[in-house]
Simulated scan of single mutants.
Amino acid sequence: MPSNSQIRKYKRSECITFRKTKEAFGGLSNMAAGYPLNVNGIYIRTSEALYQACRFPHLPEVQKLIIAQNSPMTAKMKSKPYRDQSRSDWDNVRVKIMDWCLRVKLVQNWDSFSSLLLATGDKPIVEDSHKDDFWGALSVDYETLSGVNALGRLLMQLREDIKYNPEKLEKINPLNIKNFYLCNQLIQSIFKDDQSQRNNELIMPSIFDYKYEEIRGSNLNVDKTIIDRETVSLPSENKQNLINNIFDDYVIPQLNSILIKPTILKDILKHFPTITQGQMKEWLSLAQDKGFVNVNKQKNKTLYVLRSTEKQINNEQLESEIKQLFLLK
């Protein structure tokens, strides 16, 4: 139980809250897809999987089991049977480890994650949890949240570092704790935008099923033509499933963090360096058909915005955003 001195109270109307990963600020969650990590050359789909793996430096096979899961929730569930074998100092180091995981998530997904954090302005960031008052805060009533909100406070500190101490984020050192290992390897420093740690092409192993071992780990670009080339041995229905899974597991979570404000196609493409303009238009059209994205045309410019965000912006605010974006007089 958290002590009273640790508890914070928040007014929901004055905060940025997150619970579901597909909400406007859902990318702040450790469960959010679309923020892949690479530690010591090992691909990890989410910060949740990395955090859970860090419980077990002395059990590399358990770490591999956790990392191999397609879903962050499944990764968390796979760790549960081994919780009583967590590193002996877990309760003392877990906040440090969470902070380290968030910093790795930031430096390896700089454009999308820093933009999302900065979009919170100066408001308190709170994980709106239904049961965890340590990492998040619980609803006391319709307006009030109460809890330690450790995750939210770490995210707020990270936001401050982006604004005022960006040099601290050029290099993320391994934690100075004993046995900081991943899969039998001592964890090394991670550098912002280090392409030796992250391939130029976006590798999406989260879309693979284990029975397709022959393509696991290949340099699978999200471009449909490369999907066809790399998965030529798969039945056609599985190729389509592969493409659909990329859209649901990667494209939509990325758009959730990018399209908080009306955005033009050129700026969206900056977050998808290996995607062609034609492919991105297809993804955006599909997102519009599924009700995730709205399209607005303004003076021969096409703007894309999350439908959930647009509902919160009245016409006057939207016009202001558009004018600011295109410097219209």
Rank of each mutant, 00 (worst) to 15 (best):
N300A: 07
P72R: 03
S189V: 08
K266N: 15
G26S: 05
L265S: 03
W100N: 09
S233R: 12
Y212E: 13
I260P: 06
F134T: 07
I67K: 02
W90T: 05
Y142W: 08
D128G: 01
E170D: 15
Q317A: 14
K270P: 15
M77H: 07
E143Q: 09
D249N: 10
M31S: 15
P253D: 03
D84A: 08
K123H: 07
N314T: 08
Q185S: 09
Q6L: 13
I264K: 12
V222F: 02
A137Y: 14
S189A: 12
E48Y: 02
H130P: 13
L318F: 15
T263L: 14
Q108L: 03
P57Q: 05
I42W: 01
Q288D: 13
K239E: 02
G34I: 01
C15V: 01
E237W: 03
S5Q: 14
A287K: 00
M280D: 00
L28T: 04
L286W: 00
Q185M: 11
L255H: 02
I215L: 14
C183K: 08
L255F: 02
G34T: 01
F56H: 04
I162F: 13
L117R: 06
I246M: 02
Q324E: 14
Q288H: 13
P72Q: 04
Y304Q: 08
S115G: 14
L255R: 01
L154M: 10
Q254E: 05
F134E: 13
T302W: 10
E319M: 15
L102V: 08
D122R: 11
F247Y: 05
D228A: 01
S3F: 13
P2S: 12
T46V: 03
Q312V: 04
I44S: 05
S139T: 15
H58L: 06
V251N: 00
N4T: 14
K131F: 13
N221S: 14
E321H: 10
Y212L: 07
M77Y: 08
M77I: 11
L202R: 12
L318T: 06
I246Q: 00
N200C: 10
K80Q: 09
T21M: 04
S285Q: 12
C15E: 04
I7L: 10
N173L: 14
K192L: 08
N30T: 03
T21S: 04
D99P: 08
L255Q: 02
I215G: 02
P124A: 12
P36T: 01
T120A: 14
V295A: 05
E170R: 15
Y43V: 03
L325H: 15
L138E: 06
Y43T: 06
S218N: 12
S320L: 09
K96E: 09
V148R: 06
H58K: 10
K301A: 12
S236Q: 09
T17A: 05
K20M: 11
K224C: 00
N165W: 11
D99C: 09
F134W: 13
A53S: 12
L318Y: 11
S236H: 07
Q52H: 09
I162S: 03
E160I: 05
S112A: 15
R153C: 05
S206P: 04
W110R: 00
F113G: 09
V295P: 06
G291I: 02
R87G: 05
S189H: 13
C54A: 10
Y10W: 11
M280L: 04
S112H: 10
S146Y: 06
T263S: 08
K9W: 10
E143S: 10
